[in-house]
């Protein structure tokens, strides 16, 4: 497999996943804030800031954000590298360059997805289409990932796409944790004791589509520690860091099973990281959640760089 194409497949996976997370985050934050119990959580500026933070827009902090602009930038602005539209463009560009390797079915799905986003009306979106558009993105990316799993040979091509998807997902989950943790701190800054039971934890779970699952696991409203434990360390739910790590490990193994014991390879790194998370308990991290989130974040970046070095550039 060509190194450049491997890189493209990897990024195709990442962009598909990124689009989905951006869509869901925007959707959940926007709609759940409308009737949030806390005044700050309901504040438009607060919500829009948080959406910008998610996509990494570096806006002027004291500037008043205009809702329609923020929504347009995040979803459909072709000049913003982080917009959902751009993510889908990149995903399709990557698919184009490797269309000889992915299944026809899969390519056709990406292609249709791309055209549907390109042709989505801006005016409709910013006035009435937020829910429709973001649901469409979530729905289409789910279908696409289903096609990837269901129609492609589970070989290295598949492994690379899955690798991209899972690294991106782990990164996004961690990022959302970070943003929401900060938000929860801000919301409860006058009453720090409320932090552990903030409404932001509910939004957080919804942002990663795990509210119901969390409910089934813990059978009570989410708190800081159940949310952290769940999103970081639960091995069975598909949108947790630990789950993604085990997926990453599985797919790197598919690329090169012989490298498992070589020090300083990506495979070695992920094996080590996975073990760390597997045997971590919520008690270990409860007292320094922020540091742990930051640690996870940088480990994932290191892993991604390692992968690029090892497989994508020669």
């Amino acid at each position: 497999m060509l190194a450049r194409i491997a890189n493209n497949l990897f990024w195709m996976g990442r962009y598909i996943e990124r689009a989905e997370h951006t869509a869901r985050f925007t959707n959940v934050n926007y709609f759940s804030s409308l009737d949030a119990p806390n005044k700050l959580s309901r504040d438009r500026q607060f919500v829009l800031q948080s959406i910008y933070e998610m996509v990494g827009e570096e806006d002027e902090k004291d500037e008043v954000l205009i809702e329609q602009d923020v929504l347009y930038n995040v979803a459909l602005n072709p000049d913003k590298h982080y917009s959902i539209l751009k993510c889908i463009c990149y995903a399709r560009e990557n698919a184009n360059s490797s269309r000889d390797l992915i299944s026809n079915d899969c390519y056709e799905t990406i292609n249709k997805f791309y055209h549907s986003v390109m042709n989505y009306s801006k005016d409709y979106f910013v006035t009435r289409g937020l829910h429709d558009f973001t649901s469409h993105i979530m729905h289409q990316s789910t279908i696409l990932k289903g096609k990837i799993r269901g129609t492609m040979l589970h070989d290295e091509v598949y492994a690379l796409i899955k690798l991209g998807i899972n690294i991106e997902r782990a990164t996004q989950v961690t990022r959302i944790l970070q943003i929401k943790y900060d938000a929860a701190e801000q919301v409860t800054s006058s009453k720090p004791k409320h932090l552990k039971k903030s409404y932001e934890w509910t939004t957080l779970l919804k942002c990663v589509d795990s509210f119901d699952i969390n409910r089934r696991v813990y059978r009570k409203p989410p708190t800081q520690s159940t949310v952290i434990e769940f999103l970081m360390l639960n091995p069975n739910s598909p949108r947790t860091v630990l789950y993604c790590l085990s997926q990453i490990k599985e797919h790197i193994t598919m690329l090169d099973p012989l490298k498992a014991h070589e020090k300083n390879t990506a495979l070695f790194l992920i094996g080590k990281m996975m073990c760390e998370y597997k045997y971590k308990t919520v008690e270990d991290i409860e007292d320094n959640v922020k540091e742990f989130i930051a640690h996870t974040f940088s480990s994932l970046i290191k892993l991604s760089e390692k992968l690029e070095d090892e497989y994508f550039y020669h």
Binding site: M1, L2, A3, R4, I5, A6, E156, D256, H314
Partner: peptide, 19 residues
């Protein structure tokens, strides 16, 4: 399916850059 940047010539032999 390769592009020029995927290929390299060394000592008059042609190679592609793979993973």
């Amino acid at each position: 399916l390769v592009e020029g940047r995927d290929l390299v010539v060394e000592n008059d032999f042609l190679y592609m850059k793979t993973i």
